[in-house]
């Protein structure tokens, strides 16, 4: 077994552990909103926005300002998703996997954010 296969096996093992955990707790999602509620974005870690909600009033911003606001909120939603994935992985994976998560670009943000964990448990 060479290094690549060992790496693939470690990835598969971690994936299985995380999958089992996520099957119990639901998907890891991040969310962010504009202060005025004009734009809300739901994101998964490492992927494009899954859902973009725009308030009717936000259409008055015009295309450029609205697009810029979507970009800003998407970036925050992505950071929120990365933070949540950290907290999820910390419960199931070994510390090396959690460190690797940071190394591949998923920063662990502060625990207290706009939604302080209530989003995943709230009914939608």
């Amino acid at each position: 077994m060479d290094e690549t296969e060992r790496a693939a096996r470690r990835v598969a093992d971690t994936e299985r552990q995380v999958s089992e955990h996520v099957a119990r707790t639901g998907p890891v999602l991040g969310r962010a909103s504009s202060p005025d509620g004009a734009v809300t974005v739901v994101a998964v870690p490492g992927g494009p926005p899954q859902e973009v909600r725009i308030s009717p009033a936000a259409l008055n911003m015009g295309p450029r300002a609205l697009a810029d606001e979507i970009l800003r909120v998407s970036a925050r939603a992505a950071r929120d998703a990365a933070s949540r994935m950290h907290r999820t992985l910390e419960r199931v994976a070994d510390p090396a996997a959690v460190r690797a998560l940071t190394e591949i670009g998923f920063e662990r943000g502060p625990d207290d954010d706009d939604f302080d964990g209530s989003y995943l448990r709230s009914s939608r």
Binding site: A43, P48, P49, V52, L59, P63, D68, I70, L71, A75
Partner: peptide, 23 residues
Amino acid sequence: TGELKSLDLHPNALAQGPDAVGR
């Protein structure tokens, strides 16, 4: 990795309504 770097919306897009713009 899905990070949006730029986004351009056509002015006509906004006439589709907020839900359609989101999609």
